[in-house]
Structures are given as C-alpha cells and as structure tokens.
Amino acid sequence: MSIQHFRVALIPFFAAFCLPVFAHPETLVKVKDAEDQLGARVGYIELDLNSGKILESFRPEERFPMMSTFKVLLCGAVLSRVDAGQEQLGRRIHYSQNDLVEYSPVTEKHLTDGMTVRELCSAAITMSDNTAANLLLTTIGGPKELTAFLHNMGDHVTRLDRWEPELNEAIPNDERDTTMPAAMATTLRKLLTGELLTLASRQQLIDWMEADKVAGPLLRSALPAGWFIADKSGAGERGSRGIIAALGPDGKPSRIVVIYTTGSQATMDERNRQIAEIGASLIKHW
C-alpha cells in the first residue's frame, strides 16, 4: 500500500482519535458579512469528516447552483462504474471539434489522439474542462443518470439537468442544476469515506481534487503551510461562485467545507476574496 493510499485508508482512524471539535460562531459572522459585502445569498456548511456531524452552517438547506462543483460527483459516478466493471479508466475516447464547448483548455489539445477516461476526469476536476465533463456525462448516460446515481446514494436534493455550459445559467428560483450545502457536503463525505467506492477509487477521487489547479484564489489562499486540501470550485452566471473541499491540518483532511453564493453584482475577484476570507476565519478558529 502506498503512503497516499495509507493516508486515505486511515482518515477515519486518525479522526477518531482527534480531540473533540467545537464550532466557532466567528466564522458564521464572516459568512454573514460576506453576504453584506456581496449583496447576495451565501450558503455555508462545515462537517466533521469522521462523524458527519454538522459543526457550523448557514442557509444549509437553500438551493444554490452547483456550477462546476458537480464534476466531482460526476467522476465519482464514473469511478463507481469502474468498480462495477462497467468502465475502464484506460479506455480512450475520441471526439471532434464539434464536441468542444466553451472553456476546454485540455480537451482542445487532444482532438487528434483523444483522451482516456482517467485523463478526462483529471481534466474535468483539476482544470474544470467543460468538454471533458460533457464527454464523461455521455459515458454514464447524461445528466439524468448522474441525478439517479445521487438518488441511489441517498441524495434526493442534488440534481443535474443540463450539460456544460448551460448548467451554469443560475436563474433565480430555478431548481435545475442545483444542490443544497448540506446535501453536497453529505454526498461528498460519502464519496470520500464511505463504502460506495473502493479504496482505490476513493484515493483516485481525492487525488484529482488535491491536484486542483484553478481554485488557488479561494480556500487555498488562506491555508497555512502543512495543511491538506482537496477541492473543486465552480463559477456561473449572475454572480455565482462555489467551492467544495476536504481539508485539515497535519497533512490530512478532517472536515468537509461547502460554500456557495449566487445573485451578486460583485466582480469575480471580490467573490473570490470573500470566500478566501471565510476560509481564513475557519482556519483561525479551527
């Protein structure tokens, strides 16, 4: 067993022997301040990774656009098919120029040779490549099948209805392509620590998230040296922004954090800054 596999296998073990965790309302004060600064709703939840206990939450059962955070769930569904012998990570998928959609920095470079399922998941999570996500959605049967996968996990809230990039439209009061912070946090925890996926697939999923290259201005910008984070960000229309993450000190994750916002007129930089400040408060009061 590799060191990384050992780390993920012992996530519940280490967490069980940690000192009790206590909620700190100071972080919620910052979440509410972010709402004021952005002029928009902000949803927040913080779960203990081992027990699933909610440590703090704000608007945990209000719907927010998922945006690209759905790509972690998508690759979880792909990995479940791999575990069941219905898919192979090494299978190569070929596609054409007509398949390319807006923001496809990886797939646009491989029109000639195609990409493997493993490479597509890596591109979808680490670079948020939209064509990679659409190609992977095709392998599982489309958005409705991802929703069905989530329902089978016990998540009857999260739903995907459309493809990239239309799913980022974020129309107010439109339930399409949305989740709730509580539902997303619980589902992410199941994917990373539950028995739904094999140990190898859980490790692969967290490795992809740990290698995320496009979430630097968010929670990662607030992390002290030595902290662990595996995350996936999302951005959408109407001032929408979000991030889902597993993080913790001492090089291992111990909490799940989900943050979503929508309806702001603020710039992307300002949305990023507010999420980073929430992260800084979380870490300060850990």
Rank of each mutant, 00 (worst) to 15 (best):
D129Q: 00
W163H: 09
G239H: 04
R92C: 07
V82Y: 07
F14G: 07
A280K: 15
P165Y: 05
S51T: 14
R162N: 11
T131Y: 05
A200K: 13
V106I: 14
L191G: 02
D269Q: 12
F14W: 07
L192S: 05
L73Y: 06
G90A: 13
T193Y: 15
V117I: 13
A200M: 11
C18F: 06
E237G: 15
P224L: 04
S128T: 01
T147C: 09
T147S: 11
M67V: 10
P60M: 13
S51D: 15
A148N: 15
V117T: 07
S128D: 00
R271A: 11
H285N: 14
A77C: 14
Q203P: 02
I140L: 10
D129H: 00
Y44K: 00
W227G: 02
E169Y: 11
A133E: 00
P105E: 06
G43M: 00
C75K: 00
N50F: 12
Y103I: 04
E166P: 06
E46G: 05
S122T: 09
E195N: 15
Q88H: 15
G236I: 02
I171H: 15
R159N: 07
A222G: 11
R159S: 08
D161R: 03
G194N: 10
G248N: 03
M127H: 08
W208K: 01
F6H: 08
G39V: 10
L74D: 00
Q203Y: 09
S264Y: 04
M153I: 13
L111M: 13
C75S: 07
G114N: 05
V29P: 04
A16V: 15
R118C: 13
G248F: 01
L167Q: 04
H5S: 05
W286C: 01
P60T: 12
Q97H: 14
H285D: 07
M268A: 09
Q203L: 12
A215D: 02
G39N: 14
G236W: 01
F58W: 14
A170E: 06
A215Q: 05
A183V: 13
T178G: 03
G90Q: 11
F64G: 00
V72D: 00
R92D: 06
T112Q: 15
T179H: 00
K144W: 09
P253R: 09
G52K: 06
G141A: 06
A23C: 06
T187E: 04
F58I: 08
C121H: 00
E169S: 14
V29E: 14
C75W: 00
L135S: 04
R202N: 06
D161K: 03
A245W: 01
P253F: 09
I256E: 02
N173P: 07
Q204S: 12
Q203R: 14
K284N: 12
G239D: 02
P181A: 07
L197A: 04
M153C: 15
A124F: 00
I93Y: 06
D36R: 15
A222E: 13
K144Y: 13
V72K: 00
P217A: 14
R59W: 04
S68K: 00
E277V: 11
E87H: 04
I244S: 03
L49T: 08
L137T: 07
R255L: 05
Q274G: 09
A185S: 08
L197W: 03
L150Y: 08
I243V: 11
A215T: 06
G52Q: 06
R7N: 10
V29G: 15
R63L: 09
K232Y: 00
E102D: 15
L197H: 05
C121P: 00
